[in-house]
Design a protein around this nucleic acid. Structure first.
Lengths: 135, 135
DNA sequence: ATCTTTGCAAACTTTTTGCACCAAT
DNA sequence: ATTGGTGCAAAAAGTTTGCAAAGAT
């Protein structure tokens, strides 16, 4: 929380009310929120904050490694705090999103490293399939 | 090849020169091509084929299960024939795309099925990381 | 005082859609 | 004769950018 602001300041960034509101919104959000979700939340307290500011701030936070950007489908990107390490299983049929701890991917990580020298960083994209309710 | 056309006809679809050219382009393409790539290829032989026709035909082929749509990054979608079952490892740094046989994901598939009842269908999204050249 | 961030508007990229016409079956 | 496909133009959706003014340090 304050760590984020400290990080921003250290890099010559400034703490504005828009940024404060955005970080708060990110902390309050239950994972995967779209830029639009965030814009709406921020605008509840700071009505004048423009969508472009949301995008620019998210970009800045992404550069700091504080937030991650993920694609859960064929539409908008979603953002999440970078310390929430988990994967998203998205149901093809009903759209339900299941969060899975990163550990479920450990074997895959090891396998790709061994076979391809590929170091799996983060899954910026969702894993598609059918959830238990949709068979 | 002809199977695709048969499938299309069976479902009341029609075989047009635009569709013939698009299917040919898909067959000749080396995996992941964007709608734009396909449009350009098709237009070499059929200059009047409009982008919207490309999109609509790809959508029709996707519904038939003949082509798949994948996101390899934060931009455009790419299309591929559905029988090419493989994953894409995309390098975070240099953008290099490594194709990996689906079998590399078998363990993951089994794990998600056991733990979450989630039936992994196809990975419509790329796996991000660092390739062997970028450490 | 300096340099970053903001709001606005406008551009941009990729994809979708309404419509009248054309064409495959 | 049907019904589905096409070109066109225009809209939609999501994101980015140039600029001058406002704000944080």
């Amino acid at each position: 929380v304050e760590g984020i602001f400290r990080l921003l300041r250290e890099r010559g960034g400034r703490i504005t009310s828009a940024r404060r509101a955005l970080v708060t919104a990110l902390l309050e959000a239950d994972s995967h929120v779209t830029a639009d979700d965030l814009a709406r939340t921020v605008q509840e307290s700071n009505p004048d904050v423009h969508r472009s500011t949301i995008y620019r701030t998210l970009e800045a936070l992404e550069r700091l490694g504080v937030v991650g950007r993920v694609h859960l489908g064929h539409g908008r990107a979603v953002y999440h705090l970078a310390d929430e390490v988990h994967q998203h299983l998205v149901c093809d049929r009903c759209g339900r999103v299941t969060e899975v701890p990163d550990a479920a991917f450990d074997d895959l990580t090891r396998g790709l490293r061994a076979a391809y020298g590929f170091e799996l960083l983060s899954h910026h994209f969702a894993v598609l399939g059918r959830c238990s309710g949709c068979v």
